[in-house]
Design a protein around this nucleic acid. Structure first.
Lengths: 127, 127, 127, 127
DNA sequence: GTGGTCTAGACCACG
DNA sequence: GTGGTCTAGACCACA
């Protein structure tokens, strides 16, 4: 179970961790009901302050992505809350940005090209 | 000349102001060589500290969007730096978002559809 | 770690500090990845307001000389951005000065001689 | 009699004007005892505030480059104060910058090349 | 009047 | 503890 963090990012680590878990759950990389690493174990694994992991877990539980059971550990919630939430957020953000690009005079064809380019880049990375 | 700020936003005020000016310049709402409000005047107008406006103006000058002349005032740069800068920023943001969508399992065809939908909405607004 | 400032200089303090850090990094007096003093500590050390140090640090980060991580501190960038940046700046300044000398009627041979003289002085210092 | 000013320069206009006069006097473009334009005439000619011209003239008189006679006008001083002063300043500045370049690891040959390049550029401009 | 710099001191998010 | 943002208010050089 690997979470990728960028220490230099302008986004706080706990939020990167939150998104990382949500994303993996959305993609099915994490099974429903699967047990997550303990706060302390994950903190040590990532070389990060336990408080930071704790905060991410609290946010995840608050949003119904995971369930923490005192004395037992943290588990992904059974219902796939993460999946639909994640997709919705991404598509909503894209909608806003595309509209803004349109307002700024970007041609529709440019965006179609951009989409293709992004998917090609992604293909190459996985080679 | 109206700039809209959200004091509660997670983004700093000076950055909102920076983007606001850049955007208006890119859309042609501000004329090249046009004089911007003075630091103090705009600060009072926005209900914000002059230093905050100052920082935004200095960032804009650093990026070649405006020219500030001590004792005279601040003016939009004549060359359309704002336009290209804005385009670059928005396309960069879109690139990141699309890549994230792709990583999250969104199909390429969905994005092409989304682009078309956005441009249709835009068309209707102008009817 | 000593930075020398001239409070009476016509150049702002934050710029003196910026150049001081860049110069020391370029000369190897600061190690890559080395942690710089905290904003507050350096401000107190220099007898200067923290905001002034902050501005210098932000300029350094903007130019890729250092990396500031909220909650952790500021560190010299590992890649030797400082070195090339410093060289660029100093050669640019020399270019301007030489051009001005040329415009003012200084003979080319005089400048070649001046260069030699300077390097000889430097040689003697190290004897 | 043409003085070139850069409104956007970080250097104040009165100083640009001061240097412009000194430089032209040093090059012989202005004759000793030659009469300079009146403060008001020059101000209007340059599109600049009379106070600014006034300040430049005062500095020039203070440094013995010109002599202002109330009711008659301003004249270049007979002895070529400007010439030697100007050369000295330029060469001194160059000496410092070259030494700093040397300290920063710039090779002597690079500077000789730079000198040649600058003089070539100058040649082209006058074609 | 303008922009530019600096100080003193506050609050915040983060680790 | 750290860096980041913001305020209030001062002083300066310049036009």
């Amino acid at each position: 179970m690997v979470f990728i963090l960028d220490q230099k990012s302008r986004y706080p680590i706990y939020e990167q961790l939150y998104q990382s878990v949500t994303r993996m759950a959305a993609l099915g990389a994490l099974e429903p009901e699967e047990q997550l690493p303990s706060v302390r174990a994950l903190a040590q694994d990532l070389g990060v302050n336990p408080n930071t992991v704790q905060k991410a877990y609290q946010m995840l539980e608050h949003d119904g992505v995971i369930v923490s059971i005192p004395g037992k550990g943290s588990f992904l919630s059974k219902e796939g809350n993460a999946g639909s939430l994640w997709r919705t957020q991404i598509l909503h953000k894209l909608h806003d940005d595309i509209s803004e690009a349109a307002d700024s005079g970007v041609e529709k064809s440019e965006l179609h090209t951009l989409v293709d380019v992004c998917y090609e880049e992604r293909g190459q990375k996985h080679d």
